[in-house]
Nucleic acid binder design. Structure first.
Lengths: 196, 196
DNA sequence: CCTACCGATCGGTAGG
DNA sequence: CCTACCGATCGGTAGG
């Protein structure tokens, strides 16, 4: 009870680790690096986490599950395809921007998961892509979208969305919601002017 | 003189190394892994390459220079903005698909470059992005594109283009040229149907 | 949370 | 291209 003034140590470890892994990669970040960032010894980390991969595993599935959950909600709750797409984009952008270091690791370092987590992670990602594809199918049914190759379109869209972890800064000019709108616009209409 | 029946050993080393780095990352690939793939000892590699980073450096700058050169040509030779964009997309797609493993390493592992190469690489990338931005500016001048935030648009476009190294397979259904056309279409018009 | 330490492995070199 | 080997460093454990 009562507000905690200090972060839990486990959370601090995750924050330091993800910050370092973003810069130097999972394999390029050592337990000694993480410990030094917190001013303790590497051995002390093991009182709070079970292994280095513990950090990676929790991060990848935490972000992944959040994304999957939110797109299922979108597919359950909203009916117009364009609206669905805009909500899916917004959820994706907000999840990433609100967890920048974790999202960066989620996108770039999941390959370092050992089995069976690696396979499990790929299933989670496939589920997400399938839900996204369903939005495009809805749009086709409603005669709103013209994506002939929906799998291709989804991968292209997700690439655009994931790229924001490369350049987004919380203190930058563009707010996350603005980015979501601009990405939604781009995905829907591309570069070409509607009328000259 | 005369046709060489066997690949140069240095080239074989690069091929093995890039294949392994694509699967396991730069730091996750050891000199012993590369040597084992070729059936020799790790120490023998040093008769052909000077270091592990030698492989990374050559790969990143080889792909990077090729991309930069081709986009400069596009900006020098073709005048219509849409045509320029389609050529730039095509060149990008062909460069990546024709050098899949190298391109994957180029996109994902350049952060492992040590200074001053890392900074030099970023300059090269900035040059490329600047040339791409110029195409969008041409399109605006010609009243063809409506990209208000061109830097943002360029990063989004490049994200879509770079994503192909994740899923492209030389033996797949889609040929590189088809992919270039579809990506060009998507970038120009997005998902929305022009008329209902 | 620390000291002390382990077995394994790394990139690279010497010398042939 | 190999044998033999180096100094450094890694993730993690024992025991307090």
């Amino acid at each position: 009870m009562g507000g905690q003034v200090t972060q839990e140590r486990r959370e601090q470890i995750f924050n330091s680790a993800l910050k370092l892994m973003r810069s130097n990669g999972f394999q390029g970040t050592t337990m000694r690096d993480i410990a030094a960032d917190l001013g303790i010894e590497a051995a002390s980390l093991y009182n709070h986490i079970s292994s280095k991969e513990d950090i990676l595993r929790n991060t990848c599935f935490s972000i992944g599950n959040r994304l999957v959950q939110s797109i299922h909600e979108v597919n359950d709750l909203y009916f117009n395809a364009e609206e669905k797409l805009r909500w899916a984009v917004k959820n994706h952008v907000l999840t990433l921007t609100e967890n920048l270091d974790a999202s960066y690791v989620f996108i770039h370092e999941w390959r370092n998961l050992s089995e069976p987590q690696r396979t499990e992670f790929i299933s989670l990602r496939d589920d997400y892509e399938k839900q996204f594809t369903q939005i495009l199918e809805t749009g086709e049914t409603e005669h709103l979208f013209n994506a002939t190759d929906k799998k291709f379109a989804v991968l292209t869209i997700l690439a655009s969305l994931n790229w924001i972890v490369e350049w987004y800064r919380a203190d930058g000019k563009m707010k996350a919601e603005d980015i979501a709108v601009k990405l939604g616009d781009f995905i829907l209409t591309g570069l070409r002017k509607d009328s000259i």
